[in-house]
Write a protein that binds this DNA or RNA. Structure first.
Lengths: 343, 343
DNA sequence: CTGTTAGCGCCTTCAA
DNA sequence: TTGAAGGCGCTAACAG
C-alpha cells in the first residue's frame, strides 16, 4: 500500500465538487462562503477516506506564508541553555501552528549570513536571532528588513524587538536573599564577566550593588575569575588562603558556585554554617551541589516562548525590549530564615 | 529600498535570455546544455545586480525535494545531550545543503504524530527520529514509509537504519581502565538503570562484566540507584556506612559519579588515593569534579552527524545499525599508570 | 452556493 | 544553443 500522493483535486473529484469548494471547506471558510452542509460532509468524507493532506509547499507558493520560523543561534549545543530556549520556542511555535527550522552559526558571520539566506529562500515567516549568553550585538543588516526578534541579546542601534532576562532585577533578588537571611558580615561577589559585550555579569552586579546600597551595605570585594568551575576554584581557593573571611558570597553563575563550594570545603568552611552562598542561572548544577545552592534562575524556556510569541504578535514592531523576571530556585545554601527546600 | 521579490523571469529579462536558459545556468547545467559563455556571463551579472535568490518553495513544488530534514525527538531540552546531537546533525545537514526543522514530542505519542504529519506536509526529504537516552522503541508506523533514521534508539521490529553509541564496547573500555591501572581490590558498579527499555545501563554493564571476566575478575556488586546526583549520594553513602570498602568504582554515568564523589568525601575516602573511579557519558560535569573523573564519553556530536549522513547516503536502506565508539575522556580519578590530564 | 480560470516561481520536455 | 509551453498543488478573483 504505497500511499500515492493525494491531491485536492482527488478529494474534490471524489466528493463531486470543485477544488474551489473543497479548498474553502478545508480552510474553514465554509460558513463564510455558505457552502452546503452536504457538500461539506462529502468533502470531509473524501479527505478521511483518501487520507488527504495538503501540500504546504504548494500552499505557501500561493499564500506567501510558510508557517515556519527560523531560529538562528550562535550555539545550539553548549549546555542545556540554548536548548531550553529552543524547547520553549518550539512549544510556543506549535501553539501558533508553526514549525522551527534551526541554524547554528558557531559565531561565524559568514556561516550566519549563509544560514539566514537559506532560511529566506525557504520563505520563513520570521526569524529568531538568539545568543547563548546575554550579549549586546549588531545584527546582520539583512535581518533588519525582516520580521525578526532578538533572543537573549539586544542591538542598541535598532529597535528590533528583543527578549531577555532581567539581570538587574535578578541581581537585586540575589542580594535580597542574603539581606533577608540576616547575613551581617562581609558580602563578596565571585566572578567578573570577562566576555566582551556580555550583559549578564554587569547587570547582575549592578542589581546587587543597588540592593545592598538600599540597605546601607555594599559589596566588600569582587573576586575576578572566569566563569568556569576550575577557574572559580583556583581563584576562590587562593583568595581564602590569603585570609578572606566572607559571610556571604554571591557567585555570578552556578559553575562558579560549584568551584566556590569546592574551595570552601578545601579550606574547612561549611555552607551554610560558615558562609552563605547565592548563585545565578538556576541550572541543574545548582541542584546537584550539597547543599543545593540558592540560585537566581534564567527563565530560558520562557525566553524562547516569549520570543516566538513576539514574532506571532500582530503588534510585533512595537514589542520593544522585554525583560523577563528571574525566579529564585530554592536551596539550603543560605543560613537561617531559610529559602525553603531540601539542602 | 524595500527589496522587491526578484524572480527568475526578472533575471532572464535583464540578461536578455529565456527563463529556461537562466534556469540551466543557475543549476550548473550550462556546460551540459552548451550555453554560450556570453549568455552565462550576462545571467550571472543580472543575478548579482538584482540580488536574485531562488524561491526554494517554488522549486520544491516542481522537484519534490526540499533540502530540508525533519528531526523528531522526545526531548530537545534536557541537558546538553540532545542539543549536542542536534549540533552534530545540523553541521552534517549543512554539509549536504540541508536545513533542519525540529519537533519536540515530550514523549507524547499524539504530539509526535502531529509533528510528523506537519513535517510531511512540508515535504521534508527525510526524518531523524531521536531519543535523549538510548532506548529500544517502536517507531510510529508512518515513519516506516519514509526515509527515516533512528538516532540513539533502535526498533528491533524493523530494519530502519539506526545510529547509536557502542555501550558494550564502552563498558569494556571502562573496566579496562581499572584493570590497566592495576586496581586489585573489589570492583563495584554504581547505578542500575531503572528506565524500561533503556539500552545504556545494560550494555555498559555487560561490557564491564565481559572485560573483567577476561582478566579473571568480576563485579563484586552492583549498587542500585537512580541516575541522579542525590540518588547516587544517598545510595553510596548508605552503602559505605554499611562497611563497603571498594577499590574501584564504575559509575554508570557522570551524575552518579558526582553523587559518589560526595559520598566518598563524606566518608573520608579520597579519590584516587583510596578509591579509583571511572564513569560514563563524558559530559561537562565529569570535568568539573575534583579530581576530574575519567569518563567513557557518549559521542553525541558524531551520533547526530552520522544520522544525517545516513539520511543523505544513497545506500540509506542498507545502512543497518551503526554503533559509534565511546572515546575515553581523561581525568585524575584513577590511581597510578595514569590516564593523563589534570585532576 | 459553486465552478472557471488564472497564476504563485520554478523546472523541463519538446521543438526550433 | 535557445525559447515556448505546460504543470507541480493550491488559493482566490470573478463569474454564474
Amino acid at each position: 500500500m504505497t500511499t500515492k500522493k493525494v491531491t485536492l483535486t482527488d478529494v474534490a473529484e471524489r466528493a463531486g465538487v470543485s477544488t474551489t469548494t473543497a479548498s474553502y471547506i478545508l480552510n474553514g471558510r465554509s460558513a463564510e462562503m455558505r457552502i452546503s452542509a452536504d457538500a461539506e460532509r462529502r468533502v470531509r468524507e473524501a479527505v478521511a477516506h483518501l487520507g488527504y493532506r495538503p501540500n504546504r509547499n504548494a500552499r505557501s507558493l500561493r499564500t506567501r506564508t510558510t508557517s515556519t520560523f527560523g531560529v538562528i543561534s550562535d550555539f545550539v549545543a553548549s549546555g542545556h541553555f540554548a536548548s531550553q530556549m529552543l524547547a520553549g520556542a518550539s512549544a510556543a511555535a506549535r501553539a501558533s501552528e508553526h514549525l522551527l527550522v534551526i541554524g547554528e552559526t558557531q559565531g561565524d558571520p559568514a556561516l550566519e549570513h549563509l544560514l539566514i539566506e537559506e532560511m529566506l529562500d525557504r520563505q520563513v515567516d520570521g526569524i529568531v536571532y538568539a545568543t547563548l549568553t546575554s550579549l549586546e550585538v549588531r545584527v546582520p543588516a539583512e535581518l533588519k528588513r525582516l520580521r525578526t526578534v532578538l533572543l537573549n541579546c539586544v542591538d542598541p542601534t535598532t529597535n528590533i524587538p528583543a527578549v531577555l532576562p532581567d539581570e538587574y532585577a535578578g541581581g537585586r533578588t540575589a542580594a535580597g536573599v542574603l539581606l533577608d537571611a540576616g547575613v551581617t558580615g562581609e558580602i563578596h561577589v565571585i566572578g567578573e564577566d570577562p566576555t566582551p559585550n556580555a550583559l549578564a555579569g554587569p547587570g547582575r552586579l549592578e542589581g546587587i550593588r543597588a540592593r545592598l546600597a538600599e540597605a546601607g551595605r555594599s559589596v566588600t570585594s569582587v573576586v575576578p575569575c572566569h566563569w568556569g568551575v576550575e577557574d572559580a576554584y583556583d581563584a576562590v581557593d587562593a583568595w581564602l588562603r590569603r585570609g578572606a573571611r566572607p559571610a556571604g558570597l554571591l557567585c555570578l553563575n552556578d559553575r562558579i558556585a560549584m568551584g566556590t563550594y569546592q574551595a570552601l570545603a578545601g579550606n574547612g568552611l561549611h555552607v551554610p554554617r560558615d558562609v552563605s552562598v547565592v548563585s545565578f542561572d538556576g541550572s541543574e548544577l545548582a541542584t546537584w551541589l550539597r547543599p543545593r545552592v540558592v540560585s537566581v534562575a534564567l527563565p530560558f524556556n520562557e525566553l524562547g516562548a516569549r520570543a516566538v510569541q513576539a514574532l506571532v504578535d500582530p503588534g510585533w514592531a512595537d514589542v520593544g525590549t522585554v525583560r523577563l523576571p528571574m525566579p529564585l530556585a530554592p536551596g539550603g545554601s543560605v543560613r537561617s530564615p531559610a529559602v525553603g527546600a531540601r539542602g
